[in-house]
Amino acid sequence: MDAFNGRIPAGIWGLSAVLLAAAVMLPFMLSPFQIRLAQQILLFGGMAVAWQMLGGFTNYWSFGHTAFFGLGAFAAGLLAQQLDPSLSVAVKLAIGTVFAIGLALVAALAIAIPVLNLRGIYFAIAMLAFAEILAEITKTFDAFHGTSGFPLPALLVPGLTKVQLFYFLFLLLFLTNIAVFVWLRRSRIGMGLTCIGQDEDTAAMLGIPTERYKLVAFVLSAVLTAIGGVLYGYSLGFISTGSVFRIDISLNLILYTMLGGIGTVAGPIIGAALMIVLTQVVLGNLLDLHMMLTGAVLIAMVILAPKGLMGLARKAWDRRRGAAEGRP
């Protein structure tokens, strides 16, 4: 079982350290637009990693992660309006994050018990419905201001521009997501989840506490997504239901993961980078037809690299090694 708890090779550590150093220096070298692109890659790529905590190991594919994203943004934003206006924004953000974590925890636990009993596509649909319900609730009841939207306080830190500041906050969350994911994958839970992904009934029969493992992964994934929502809300400064409860956010997390390669750390990040650069840089200036081209690239990617780019790279690597060792 060395895939689960073998040592992480020194090469990977080295590469990670170089990447991290680069990530810290980037915002001081890039233009604000490029930082904004990087922000989105960190935020949505990081959330795709969080999504994978359940969806990457098993067939429990959530089609409604925007539920937790929106929940976080709304919880922190609405709380900020209730807090003493004299509090500093950083404190408001901190309290809001704690509140959002708590709320996401409760919501995830409450919804997990019924939906985690559903299999395959039914779980996906149930999560979609859950996200729609939360979105509709924020729009239907005026107390949540979801229809007309509401402002969030502006966070300022001396010495950093707003884009740089949120870049670092997203980076922090991104690193947390990766750390939790790597820990999860290497833990007993990750092994259990992989078994669940292969055959849940057999796993349960073999004594793996399937319910508990699924619950842990689901809740972790939900809470980390909610924190993403908090930071995103603050970075926009004004949100409505339409800004944070978006089916396309849910779909994009899956899309990034599948494009890059499911079950890997780098996959969702590569997928996010590819799609964000494609839609906002390459096709960004197109007024028409960019949706069509996005669709075409998407289809081409799925047909040409069904296991994602990471899967493709691995295959190429295996082939090269095979050739080097003189095997066919």
Binding site: P32, F33, S243, R246, Q280
Partner: peptide, 11 residues
């Protein structure tokens, strides 16, 4: 989409 809008306006 606010994420897309803000980044394109920033550009």
């Amino acid at each position: 989409d606010p994420a897309r809008a803000t980044s394109l306006i920033q550009r």
